[in-house]
C-alpha cells in the first residue's frame, strides 16, 4: 500500500486535555472509516491532517508533505469540517463560487464546478437562498459540496452524515463509495458503526486519543456481535411479544418496564435478534411503537471491548 497519509508518533493535547496520543498510522487509497465515540480524538486527527492544527509531538504528512501552512496541498485535498458553519449572509451559490475561485478556477470554470458540486448534493434549486435560511441538513450538504467541488485526490469528511435526512444519507454514502472506487483516498469519521460499515470494511478504531484497533471491520464486527445488547421495545402487547421471544436461544433475558408498555430484551446475537423480531412483528401483527437500543453505540462497544 502506498501511504497517502502517514502519521508517526503523532500526539496533540490542548492544555491538560489530551486530543490524541502516539498515533502511528498509514492510510492509502480507498475509503477508511475513522470510528470512535464522541471525544475519542477523531476530529483532532482530521484537523491535523487538514492543516488546521499543528502536531504537538510527532508528524503527519499527506502526499509526503506536512500540511500546516502548506496551502498548495489543498489543490489535492478536500476537507468537510464537522462544525455547522458557513458564511450565513452569503447564498449557497456565492459561498461555493467563492471557494471555487479560491481553488484557482477562472470565472466560467468556477461557475461550472460550483453548479456540478451543488447539483451533486441536491442544492442547485436552492442555490440563491441565503445560507441562514437553509436547514441543518442542507448546510451539511453544502459543506460536503465545498469539499468535493475541486474533485480532490484525497477527501476528509468529519461526521458528514450528521443531520442529513435518510434519502440524502444513502445518496451521500453512494457518492463516497464512488470516490473510493475511483482510487481516491477518502477518510470518513463517524461514531456510528453501521454508517461506516455501509461504506467500507477498512476501519481505524480510536478511543481516548489512541488507535485501539485497525483493519478489516469483520474482525471487529465479530467482537461486537458477541457483545450482549439490550433492546428496548415499546408496544401495546409487551407480554405477548415476550412470550414469542423468550424461547429463542439468542435471548438472554426479558424484563418488563414499570410503565407496562415496554420490555427490555438482552441478546448476545444482535443482528439475528433484529431479523427474528422483524419477522415476528410482520407475522403476529403486534403494534410496535418504538425500538431503541440503549447500548447500540460505539461507546458501549468500546466499554465492552476494553472490558469495563
Amino acid at each position: 500500500m502506498t501511504a497517502v497519509l502517514k502519521a508517526e508518533k503523532l500526539s496533540k493535547w490542548y492544555g491538560n486535555i489530551l486530543g490524541i496520543s502516539d498515533i502511528n498510522l498509514e492510510i492509502g487509497s480507498g475509503i477508511t472509516g475513522l470510528l470512535g465515540p464522541n471525544g475519542a480524538g477523531k476530529s483532532t486527527f482530521l484537523k491535523i491532517a487538514a492543516g488546521q492544527l499543528k502536531p504537538k509531538i510527532g508528524s503527519l504528512t499527506v502526499f509526503g508533505a506536512a500540511v500546516f501552512g502548506n496551502h498548495r496541498l489543498f489543490r489535492r485535498i478536500g476537507f468537510c469540517p464537522e462544525h455547522d458553519s458557513a458564511y450565513m449572509e452569503m447564498s449557497g451559490w456565492q459561498f461555493i463560487l467563492l471557494l471555487a475561485r479560491l481553488h484557482g478556477f477562472d470565472r466560467n470554470e468556477a461557475g461550472a464546478m460550483s453548479e456540478k458540486a451543488l447539483a451533486t448534493v441536491g442544492l442547485l434549486e436552492s442555490k440563491d437562498r441565503e445560507i441562514k435560511g437553509y436547514s441543518f441538513g442542507m448546510r451539511q450538504r453544502l459543506r460536503l459540496a465545498s469539499s468535493i467541488l475541486h474533485e480532490p485526490e484525497m477527501l476528509m469528511l468529519d461526521e458528514p452524515l450528521r443531520g442529513v435526512d435518510p434519502l440524502w444519507r444513502i445518496k451521500i454514502m453512494k457518492l463516497i463509495k464512488d470516490y473510493g472506487k475511483q482510487g481516491r483516498t477518502v477518510i470518513i469519521s463517524s461514531h456510528i458503526l453501521p454508517e461506516i460499515e455501509a461504506m467500507t470494511s477498512e476501519i481505524v478504531l480510536i478511543h481516548q486519543g489512541k488507535i485501539f484497533a485497525k483493519g478489516d471491520i469483520h474482525r471487529i464486527r465479530g467482537l461486537i456481535d458477541s457483545h450482549p445488547h439490550q433492546v428496548s421495545i415499546r408496544c401495546l402487547q409487551p407480554r405477548q411479544l415476550a412470550q414469542k421471544l423468550i424461547d429463542s436461544d439468542f435471548v438472554l433475558s426479558v424484563d418488563f418496564d414499570k410503565d407496562g408498555h415496554s420490555l427490555t430484551v438482552k441478546t448476545n446475537q444482535r443482528d439475528l435478534f433484529f431479523t427474528v423480531l422483524i419477522g415476528l412483528i410482520a407475522e403476529s401483527g403486534l403494534e410496535i411503537e418504538e425500538i431503541t437500543s440503549p447500548d447500540d453505540n460505539l461507546q458501549a462497544v468500546f466499554d465492552y471491548l476494553i472490558g469495563k
Binding site: Q52, H71, F74, R75, I77, G78, S85, L99, L102, H103
Partner: peptide, 8 residues
C-alpha cells in the same frame, strides 16, 4: 476552516 483549506 473554509479559507484555510483552499490553495491560497
Amino acid at each position: 476552516v473554509y479559507l484555510t483549506t483552499v490553495p491560497v
